[in-house]
Design a protein around this nucleic acid. Structure first.
Length: 586
RNA sequence: GCGCCCGUAGCUCAGUGGACAGAGCAUCGGCCUUCUAAGCCGAGGGUCGCAGGUUCGACCCCUGCCGGGCGCACCA
């Protein structure tokens, strides 16, 4: 449902009409649903429409159309801000507002400014949003970029919806992958010094491993060749993971994504949290021993089978870390946990839900958002990647080539659980074909307009001081309507954890702006322009021109400037939620 | 074999159970003496994978099938 102030106003007017009709005995129901108020599919049907009559037709035991008429009559009688109320089959209620109603939207935007659209639905609930969390075994790639953009946008969106959000990166700095990293670096190190060695079977082959070994040789005071292989390996592992985490932080910072906390998996071991968490479960008989391994009774919580947490060889599994980690999350006081995972881990979700339930929390305490793969294209042709051979396009490569803004916008143009095609050529293009520029250009265009206006002595006034009744053109009303639906959009996007809706909204709003801008002038032509025009030939192609010939009074200029100011505010608010900049100049 | 996700215009994708299913790209044809043409306008294009069901009403919910992706470890 939309929560824009106009939509709310109409919804409550309908509710009132329902209750009044009920009192007068023309409706029978004891309870009515909250009326859904939306834009009708076609503008000519009215400003707003509601399907409430069809929803209650059944309980009223009357045809929807008849119910709609009852509501319409009541609305018409009691509601002064509606210019027209009509009914359309099969039972839609269409209303047209008095034009001045829409102007309150502009006041609302001016009053709330960069908080326009924000809500309190989160009620200050504390949310831990964990994302990216890539192993520090190499640089971040495209897929991580998508997760990073989504996480950042979600954090901003949820904060705007009244949640208290912390962003966290879980560093997988323990276990097999780290051992492989250590071995790989050590092998390159030995190689560098002409020592014979065999490169580990599943090691990391990328050139960055050689770079790490070289940097280590340069910057470390101890010579690794003087150490025994075990110590040398450990040195390599620690150095490499430290360096890679540092590089990952840098990449993310350049991408415009920062975290409140970086949580080390290794710290779960050293602090004894793993044993503590497992002990907690054991006391409630949710952990048992069999075949020399320790198991978690996840099957009690709708997982398909029990899972090993400590192997026969005494090592903990990844799940053990996750149990301890998520236990710690809720113990730190977070009421809602959101994890953003690659879709290839979806099979892991029931297990993790079982963990949460085992600690006594409900299903809705943990929400896992899955992110599908990114297919990288260049001018329509697939860019081949092979992680095995260490050949993949890094996030850094993409940011360098197309910029952080374009990259983020592209990552947020699709629902997260569908595959995404990312065309580097398109993302770089500086034209209307490139969606990110299309939206940013709308913002910059307005900034430029305001600069010119100021030079010419037109200052954007406050909404209250502007002659807004001059705003009657369809393109103007359409803009205001679109602005009015922004709060509802944010609420729905936050509830669904779907920032891509904001992307689509902005493209639409920018489109409306560009159309308006093309059809109408805001500032009067300069004196010399006017002279040119009058000395020019008489207009032959009046018909063919899309431009609206209109008298541009000072009032109209002032009113349009105020309207466009609010448009600019909303574009900016939207872009900032996506983590994309709103440039003043392009 | 079991589980999850996806099948919507030539391509990439939107579409909280509501009206004649939308956008961008691509194709074709137009618009710069205008406050930013990084812009605008017009045209063509569809069995919403298939078949049932629920509903006053289904692209949306349920069941089955077909096609694609991904999972099903004492790996992470």
């Amino acid at each position: 449902m939309s929560a824009g102030i106009i939509q709310e106003q109409v919804a409550s007017a309908i509710t009132n009409a329902l209750l009044q009709a009920q009192q007068r005995g023309s409706l029978q129901s004891a309870h009515f649903p909250q009326p859904v108020v939306d834009f009708p599919k076609r503008e000519e049907w009215g400003d707003l429409s509601s399907s409430v009559a069809m929803l209650i037709a059944k309980q009223e035991k009357r045809p929807p159309l008849e119910v709609a008429h009852v509501i319409a009559d009541q609305l018409q009688a009691s509601c002064t801000f509606l210019e027209k109320v009509s009914v359309a089959p099969p039972g839609f209620l269409n209303v047209t507002l008095r034009p001045d109603c829409w102007l309150s939207v502009l006041e609302e935007i001016e009053r709330t400014g960069d908080r326009y659209g924000h809500s309190k639905i989160g009620q200050g609930q504390r949310v831990l949003l964990e994302f990216v969390s890539a192993n520090p075994t190499g640089p971040l790639h495209m897929g991580h970029g998508r997760g990073a953009a989504l996480g950042e946008a979600l954090a901003r969106l949820l904060r705007a919806a009244g949640y208290e959000v912390d962003k966290e990166y879980y560093i997988n700095d323990a276990g097999r992958q780290m051992k492989l990293l250590a071995d790989s670096v050590y092998a390159r190190y030995l190689e560098m010094h002409g020592r014979e060695c065999s490169f580990p079977e599943d090691g990391y082959h990328g050139d960055y491993i050689k770079t790490l070994a070289q940097a280590m040789d340069r910057e470390k005071s101890i010579h690794l060749l003087t150490l025994n292989p075990e110590d040398a390996r450990r040195e390599c592992g620690q150095w490499a993971s430290h360096e890679l985490v540092r590089a990952i932080k840098e990449d993310l910072a350049q991408f415009g994504v920062e975290f409140e906390t970086w949580y080390s998996e290794a710290s779960l071991f050293s602090s004894g949290r793993i044993q503590a968490a497992l002990h907690d479960l054991e006391q409630r008989d949710l952990v048992f021993t069999q075949d020399g391994a320790t198991w978690f009774r996840s099957s009690r919580f709708q997982d398909e089978k029990d899972r090993v947490v400590c192997k026969q060889d005494g090592d903990y599994t990844y799940l053990a870390s996750d149990i301890a980690y998520h236990f710690d999350k809720v113990r730190r006081g977070y009421e809602w946990l959101i994890n953003i995972w690659g879709a290839d881990h979806h099979g892991y979700v029931p297990r993790m839900q079982a963990v949460i339930k085992a600690f006594g929390y409900g299903d809705d305490c943990l929400r896992v958002v899955l992110v599908q793969m990114v297919r990288l294209l260049r001018g329509g042709k697939k860019v081949e990647m092979s992680k095995r051979a260490g050949e993949f396009v890094t996030l850094q490569d993409v940011v360098d080539e197309v910029g952080a803004d374009a990259a983020k916008f592209f990552f947020l143009m699709r629902r997260s659980d569908t595959h995404l095609e990312f065309d580097l050529e398109l993302a770089k293009k500086q034209s209307a074909e490139n969606p990110v520029y299309y939206v940013q250009y709308a913002h910059a265009r307005l900034a430029s307009l305001f600069r010119t206006a100021q030079e010419r002595g037109f200052f954007v006034s406050s909404v209250g001081g502007a002659p807004l009744s001059a705003l009657v053109q369809p393109e103007e009303i359409r803009l205001i309507k679109q602005l009015s639906s922004f709060p509802g959009l944010l609420e729905a996007s936050a509830k669904a954890l779907e920032p891509h809706r904001i992307t689509f909204y902005l493209l639409e709003l920018a489109g409306f702006l560009h159309v308006f801008y093309y059809k109408h002038r805001v500032l009067p032509p300069r004196v010399d322009d006017a002279k040119e025009e009058s000395s020019g030939e008489p207009d032959h192609d009046e018909e063919s021109s899309a431009l609206v010939r209109e008298v541009l009074s000072r009032e109209l200029t002032m009113a349009r400037l105020v309207l466009l100011k609010q448009v600019q505010t909303v574009i900016k608010n939207g872009l900032l939620l996506l983590g994309v900049s709103a440039p003043e100049k392009m």
